[in-house]
Nucleic acid binder design. Sequence first.
DNA 1: AATGAATGAGTATTCATTCAT
DNA 2: AATGAATGAATACTCATTCAT
Lengths: 192, 192, 192, 192
Amino acid sequence: MTPGRKEQILDAALTLFAERGFHGASIPELAATAGIAPASLYRHVESKEQLVNEVYRRAKALLASALFSAVPVDASTPLREQFHHLWWALVGFARREPRAFAFLELHHHGDYLDAESRAVELRVLAPIAQVVERGRAAGVLKAQPAPALIVTVWGAFVGMVRAARAGYFTLDDDMCRAVEHTTWDAIRGSSP
Amino acid sequence: MTPGRKEQILDAALTLFAERGFHGASIPELAATAGIAPASLYRHVESKEQLVNEVYRRAKALLASALFSAVPVDASTPLREQFHHLWWALVGFARREPRAFAFLELHHHGDYLDAESRAVELRVLAPIAQVVERGRAAGVLKAQPAPALIVTVWGAFVGMVRAARAGYFTLDDDMCRAVEHTTWDAIRGSSP
Amino acid sequence: MTPGRKEQILDAALTLFAERGFHGASIPELAATAGIAPASLYRHVESKEQLVNEVYRRAKALLASALFSAVPVDASTPLREQFHHLWWALVGFARREPRAFAFLELHHHGDYLDAESRAVELRVLAPIAQVVERGRAAGVLKAQPAPALIVTVWGAFVGMVRAARAGYFTLDDDMCRAVEHTTWDAIRGSSP
Amino acid sequence: MTPGRKEQILDAALTLFAERGFHGASIPELAATAGIAPASLYRHVESKEQLVNEVYRRAKALLASALFSAVPVDASTPLREQFHHLWWALVGFARREPRAFAFLELHHHGDYLDAESRAVELRVLAPIAQVVERGRAAGVLKAQPAPALIVTVWGAFVGMVRAARAGYFTLDDDMCRAVEHTTWDAIRGSSP
DNA sequence: AATGAATGAGTATTCATTCAT
DNA sequence: AATGAATGAATACTCATTCAT
């Protein structure tokens, strides 16, 4: 009946799983956070495992759409600019959906994730990989293996968000710009 | 009597906690992995919480010693060289103690960590911070805020190790060298 | 649903706690006696400690009501008659609720009793104390300190019930009358 | 070796069993209180059950000897005087061995007591019964059934000690005398 | 659609006891 | 004689899940 019930459940699950992990969040807690009885939860969800997987796919989809929307259809856009779009798309995501971001970080492993959930993993980095490949081909990026470049970008970004969440600093524009700068220098080629 | 009992337990705990997290690893499993009965575990450990904390402190100590040993006493060493030492000390640690590395990544949050365990957190990054500060002062590194530089280095490193663990590539010398390269370019100053 | 569930549990607890004491009665036993699964017990009770305390308060309330109902509102009733009422009210209680009586005897100490439970203790002897005080004031009872009189009455009564329970005799009217007689002589003044 | 070892154990057991009951006192606690290791306890004692039984018999023996010594060999002693001896022998025991007294009260039931322990029960009240019987025969005591008289005396005494232990008053000479007085009046015949 | 009641399987932890030293 | 180490069985309690209503 209540149209948002499922939404409430997924939202509660996102929060609790992100905070305490899969095994640390119990069904009674999840139900209580969602404002319903434990038994009622099973009207909307098949099992705890199915629930994490659903949350996982949602979070990934959110991240993926943030990323895809950042890569311009027009391939002629200068790479530096593309990188800039990508970077701030990521920042936007981390700011808008901090719980989803934290959840994804904590759950990209785990026996409880099914095959389909794991599959999403790779697809998500595709936009980054695509930009990188194009840049390498055009000689604008370093000649290093693509994975080295990707890992540097993604790692620096995650490190920045984590540090902010841990309280070392706030995720303000200045900081994001600073790390965008270091990260771009990390991957760009040496030619002017 | 068996001198290695405690060691066995801490070892088993390191493995299981790293693989499944605190709540995902049960006492029966921990005991079985250590090759003893659940009840026997309590002759060596006060509680499950005390056990994670002990494992946590050990892992941090291992990481800390790897880092400290990498910073040369002689401050006149060129910074690029210092960075090189640091980088490969980290690589050495991640290779030698992959479980400790994974454990630390997964457990730097968590209600079950006591005050003392959390305190170690900051002390560990001190050597990196120290090198970075010196470099900034000398104009060898970028003028960006130190945290931005540190986060880039540490993030890229963690990203690399994680990606390797996830199976995207192996943590071989070539890959480590490649990311060392990108990372150095990320933080070094623009002067020749 | 089953409306008597809680009742069944409290009843089972009364029996087992009275027979074996708090530590001697286990949750599985309590649940089995109540005809439910151990886990189900916790839908009705918060913890074992809360359960004893609930049983304790119920038993005390039963005893208290038996006693209060025995003291006539009309203070002009001759004291011998009042004592008679009191005595047979006690006998009635011990006969009707032998388990409650046994339980109270065994549990008026114990760390597991909370502050509120202990508080009931004193209130219960109030009716006896009241009768005794009135009698002393009127010179119908001995001039001995009230506690000496109260303790004699209550002690003789408890002794009688205990001996009956131990099988030395049955708690029949003759025996109760006999001890009523001795006890009255114990406290009554020497005047005709 | 240490000659008093067994004594220490029995003493610790007396204390703990009296305070917390059989099931409430654990072997580790008993051993700790006795100042030895749990395993060492089993050098001196066969099992926890055997230990309670041993403590039980000791306590009963202590009480029995207090009572027996109070009944004068000379049967011609006036009964009031004999009662007086008996009463103060009991008082002496309750004061000298408060733990033994408390222990006996708490443990005269219990599955863990073996046949022999239970047997002691009856023998102990024999001296009281003997005095009572003699008094009834001589017409100095009430004509009520002997058990009624015994139960009154013993019950009032136990009630007094319990109340003192519960903190309602101290077991001083005045109080003991007062209750001796009420109790004697309870059982003595009506003749001058 | 929602839930109170119920429970088998599991949780961390303790206990009484044995045994090698 | 004494004990550290070990453990099977038990303890109080929680969980994920089902089902009747």
